[in-house]
């Protein structure tokens, strides 16, 4: 089962990450060499206004170049579409700002590869090691986590983590249905309602290495209201599907 026949695609959304993107890809390259499956990567340049696109082109890194800015959801979804079309077994979403350490790639890929889960989320809060983010954000994340648990019964601690591996059927699902603006919590809910098995694996995250986060403190209130509302709407717009069975899909 574990040979280089299995292909994993790492999708890295990138918006104005000229300081980080090359380091991220380099770290991924060195981490991927030791793994027993083939790892490819695809940067999705979400119409960056800095030198990101030029850097990607010069360094011959595979990338998608979005002609207009779609936001993180639209960018990641294009990656899922690519993974789907190219027939990858597993798609991994990983931030381009250096928060996610590719050393933990296998930690989140392994449960999906073993067929135990359809989505494995790299979670900061399982072992409470590494960068734990600010107190207010933890409160917000806990609130969203509670919302998701109340709406569909799925227990996920780190619902905003953008470091996650998805099986081929779930990748195909996300290629068609993916939330637009701040998609991570909504994707968990949608996947759970559609019957996909979701779990978490402990990882350590770093503080972002440079650039600006997509969620500024000024927008936090707007973010919380919007995400909570879209979670409730999503719950009512989807019908619950029975959970999939274990084993390789």
């Amino acid at each position: 089962m574990e040979n280089k026949q299995t292909r994993v695609l790492v999708i890295i959304p990138c918006y104005n990450e000229q300081e980080n993107i090359l380091n991220t890809v380099a770290a991924l390259r060195s981490a991927a060499a030791a793994l027993p499956y083939a790892v490819d990567w695809l940067v999705v340049n979400d119409c960056s206004t800095d030198q990101s696109a030029a850097l990607l082109r010069e360094n011959d890194i595979p990338f998608l170049d979005l002609p207009v800015n779609l936001g993180i959801g639209g960018a990641v979804q294009s990656g899922y579409r690519y993974a789907c079309r190219q027939g990858y077994d597993i798609a991994v979403q990983m931030d381009g700002d250096g928060q996610h350490d590719p050393v933990y790639l296998d930690t989140i890929v392994a449960p999906v590869l073993a067929g135990e889960l359809d989505m494995c989320i790299g979670s900061r809060f399982l072992e409470k090691k590494g960068f734990q983010t600010s107190f207010m954000r933890r409160v917000g994340i806990r609130f969203l986590s509670g919302c998701i648990r109340g709406l569909c019964g799925q227990r996920v601690l780190d619902v905003t983590s953008g470091f996650r591996a998805t099986s081929a059927p779930l990748t195909a699902f996300f290629a068609e249905h993916y939330a637009a603006d701040y998609p991570e919590p909504e994707a968990v809910l949608a996947a759970s309602l559609a019957g996909f098995r979701i779990g978490e694996a402990p990882v350590q995250m770093k503080e972002r290495q440079g650039g600006v986060s997509s969620i500024s403190s000024f927008k936090s209130a707007y973010y919380m209201i919007k995400v909570t509302l879209s979670l409730v709407i999503a719950r009512f717009s989807m019908r619950r599907t029975a959970k999939r069975q274990g084993g390789r899909p």
Partner: peptide
């Protein structure tokens, strides 16, 4: 459309 365009361009 933007996504389809990006995929085609790649």
């Amino acid at each position: 459309l933007a996504q389809a365009n990006a995929l085609l361009e790649q």
